[in-house]
Design a protein around this nucleic acid. Sequence first.
DNA 1: CATGAATGAGCCTTCATTCAT
DNA 2: AATGAATGAAGGCTCATTCAT
Lengths: 207, 207, 207, 207
Amino acid sequence: MKIYWRCTINKRRKANDKYQRILQAAIKVFAEQGFFQSTIAQIAKEAGVADGTIYLYFKSKDDILVQFFNYKTKQVFDGFRKEVDRADNAVDKLRNLIRRHLAEFQRDRNMAILYQSETHQSTRLVEKQIKEMSNMYLDIVAEIMEQGQQEGLIRRNLYLSLVKRFILGAVDEVINTWIHSGGQYDLVSMADPLVDLFIEGVGAGGD
Amino acid sequence: MKIYWRCTINKRRKANDKYQRILQAAIKVFAEQGFFQSTIAQIAKEAGVADGTIYLYFKSKDDILVQFFNYKTKQVFDGFRKEVDRADNAVDKLRNLIRRHLAEFQRDRNMAILYQSETHQSTRLVEKQIKEMSNMYLDIVAEIMEQGQQEGLIRRNLYLSLVKRFILGAVDEVINTWIHSGGQYDLVSMADPLVDLFIEGVGAGGD
Amino acid sequence: MKIYWRCTINKRRKANDKYQRILQAAIKVFAEQGFFQSTIAQIAKEAGVADGTIYLYFKSKDDILVQFFNYKTKQVFDGFRKEVDRADNAVDKLRNLIRRHLAEFQRDRNMAILYQSETHQSTRLVEKQIKEMSNMYLDIVAEIMEQGQQEGLIRRNLYLSLVKRFILGAVDEVINTWIHSGGQYDLVSMADPLVDLFIEGVGAGGD
Amino acid sequence: MKIYWRCTINKRRKANDKYQRILQAAIKVFAEQGFFQSTIAQIAKEAGVADGTIYLYFKSKDDILVQFFNYKTKQVFDGFRKEVDRADNAVDKLRNLIRRHLAEFQRDRNMAILYQSETHQSTRLVEKQIKEMSNMYLDIVAEIMEQGQQEGLIRRNLYLSLVKRFILGAVDEVINTWIHSGGQYDLVSMADPLVDLFIEGVGAGGD
DNA sequence: CATGAATGAGCCTTCATTCAT
DNA sequence: AATGAATGAAGGCTCATTCAT
């Protein structure tokens, strides 16, 4: 029994290992070459498995991308809310959100690359997932803004659905720039200046 | 002579027509299906020419994309500066830039789609072109900001290279959202609220 | 009338010119690149005419080769017999044949190249022509040999149909070597040593 | 272990089988249709495999030809020297060389056809290989001639570099004739008469 | 579970040939 | 007669996916 149990666990762990290895390998290859220019053979080689093995864990090449956004990226976005909840006022919440956002994307550069690619494609293989995550993010920002308005920290005459995208877009672009710079500087350090820009704007009015 | 001249002109016009037709068709197909999922056959069909005809005007499938960014998109970006020069103070210049940006992308939705895709890809077939246009845009914004600082319209304690991307990113995201919404609302109307956000921020400080 | 006549002549001369120009151009391109790797476009460019013009003078790409062997090469081979007839005894006739053979192939290296290629191809586009010329050559050699036997210059116990090919093959190979050497030395100077080998062999018996 | 070993061996044998089958099929198709007129589809059909399978064993269509000349034809030429070494005097060596040459080319008619084609092409895909084999052959003949001169069997006043080609050319032409006759008679039986011609020449001098 | 050889549909590209001007 | 733009059939090659081992 014990042996059997150990064996099962090992198999599961091993199986899980292989699943993770393939997923990580795929993400790496996708990030480096782009999804359509990546081949199953490359992924298999990177993961150290046979081509056919990939089809034991994923339905198709497309499915790898789907799984990635379903589990990995989703998890990251789920973490955002928790981080937001750890702050009290709207401004701190926004700061926490953006810090976490930049931190997570900095931590997994391949994810960052893939996310940026897929988000801006016209025909998305992961339409639904992207939309879901994107909406979750926008909802969080909207909530923060609304809370901020009640707190008197955020002005009231705002076109909220524009503000949401304004913030997401700015953060995205900062990430995008970081990616194309080769990821050499500290992305998280951009958080505070960014939040400052969001809150104060570039105008001289508040000085 | 006159006949010969007319003939030459007609031929050129015709050749130019076909070049434009293929280019437009390609852009449409690329925008709809994505570059890698588009086939030469689809483009040819859309343009109403034979497959081989495409290779009389373009070296390869890749070349179509390159030509598009070299001539069409470049032209659009070149127009930005002229629009900026038509305004005096920094805020109006920014407003003009963003209005024109949104207007042009609204006018040619396929260009907008392609631009968004290619800008956010990790491996860009048009790396150089994108970078050039992007830099031109960022430079314009930077100039506007600096002018604004001298005019007293823009506050001085700014991390300029962040501000540039903050603005571009926000505009991009607004366009991106418009694209994925199906392009049903008026994109240009976003310009003024956007500029307001850039200048004033979302904070209640200035009220 | 006069004008018309001149015009016709000019046209014919001009037409003939163009025919010849295309033919020469084709032979050059074929010789340089090989028949199947040559394109009509290359030939047209080399001849200084439009692609379509070629089809006013030749039915097809294949036809160019056929015409070449029908008229140009045939003419060369027809000249062989005349040269042979200018000698009396068999050995001199053989010498004349080989000299002329080498001289003609040296004079038109492209023809030499094409002839060597087509002669040794399994599927010949010019099967009939090659066979005809080849047979004419072999017949001449056979006649010379028979005459030589009657003259007592050639020994009688010979397998004639082998001897014919033995001689043709040796000459061909000498030409082939000359071609691949870049045609830098004098091919005709090989004639006398060759005839000597044919007559005397390499054996020490006759010394 | 044993099973694994057997399995490996079987796999290798199978893989080797397929490699050989494709190579043979290709050679056959090339011989029948000529290299440039042969298609991968034809070769695949002849070999009984899918088109794509060919690319598991060969880099490209060209590569098939290269491999053929690198391994198959080379092996044949390597065998020549051994055969030569089995004879003592120069004449017997020459006889052995030519017998073996004719025998090998008779045994693999497709190789014979391909070799003749490629040897006489102006632009050779297998330039290097052909030259190497050709030179080896010529060197052997030269050695034999020199040995013969020392033995007193071959006369001394010879233009050796011409003699080499004279012999190779004659043999080649005999093979070429055999090929175009449909390969219906015994090629090897030509060896003795040929050697006789080389040694004695056609002249009546020795009688 | 794992393998990787085999498959074959599909794509980009070339180029001989045609035909309107 | 001459042009050369246009055609579209055909071929080399790739690669996602399958399946026998």
